[in-house]
C-alpha cells in the first residue's frame, strides 16, 4: 500500500511500488497530460512536481513518492506561477506538435517558483533536460522571460477549441 496525493487528491494503491509514477498517472489515474518520451529520464516529457520539485516520473517508482504531494500539468494552471507560465506559452505561441510541452511547462513552472528572474544561464540549467524535437527552444526561453516579467498578453488571438482533435 502506497499513500500519496496527486493534484490534491489522496491516493492509496496496491499497484506494485516499483511501477514508475508516470505509468501510474497515465494508466491508473488516466492523467494523460504527462507524457512518455524515453523512459530513462533523458527527455523530460514526463516531468511532474513532487513537493514542488521537478522530477522525471518515468524513472521515479511509486515507492519513492510515498507521503509526497504530486502535481501534474492538469492542475499546474491553478497555481499562480503555473498560470503565468501557461499564459506566457500562449502569448509566445510556443507549441508545435505539443508533445513535450507538458514537461517543458512543468520544468519552467518549477524554475520560476524558486527563481523569479532567471538569467539565460538559469534557464539553460533548468530546461536542458527537456527535449523538443520541433525546436521550440527559443520560444520556450522567450515565454519563460515573459512569465517572469509578468508582461504576457494572456488572451490568445484564436479562441481555442478546447480539444482540437476528436479523442
Amino acid at each position: 500500500m502506497v499513500l500519496f496525493t496527486v493534484n490534491g487528491e489522496r491516493i492509496s494503491t496496491n499497484v506494485n511500488p516499483s511501477t514508475p509514477l508516470l505509468w501510474f498517472l497515465r494508466d491508473n489515474l488516466q492523467l494523460t497530460g504527462t507524457k512518455y518520451g524515453c523512459g530513462m529520464a533523458l527527455c523530460g516529457a514526463c516531468t511532474v512536481h513532487v513537493d514542488g520539485n521537478p522530477i522525471r516520473s518515468c524513472s521515479t517508482p511509486l515507492s519513492a513518492v510515498a507521503g509526497k504531494k504530486i502535481t501534474t500539468i492538469e492542475v499546474i494552471g491553478k497555481t499562480p506561477v503555473g498560470k503565468k507560465v501557461q499564459e506566457a506559452w500562449l502569448a509566445e505561441d510556443v507549441v508545435q506538435c505539443g508533445y513535450c510541452q507538458s514537461g517543458q511547462i512543468m520544468s519552467a513552472a518549477a524554475l520560476l517558483a524558486k527563481n523569479k528572474a532567471p538569467t539565460d544561464a538559469d534557464i539553460d540549467v533548468a530546461m536542458s533536460g527537456n527535449i523538443c524535437r520541433c525546436g521550440t527552444y527559443n520560444r520556450v526561453r522567450a515565454a519563460i522571460k515573459v512569465a517572469a516579467s509578468g508582461k504576457g498578453s494572456p488572451a490568445p488571438a484564436a479562441a481555442p477549441a478546447k480539444k482540437p482533435a476528436k479523442a
Partner: peptide
C-alpha cells in the same frame, strides 16, 4: 496564433498514446 495551443499547454490535447 495556433488554435491547438490551449489544449497543448494544459495537458488536455489527446495524442495517439493518450
Amino acid at each position: 496564433k495556433r488554435i491547438d495551443a490551449p489544449a497543448k499547454v494544459d495537458g488536455t490535447a489527446k495524442f495517439g498514446l493518450d
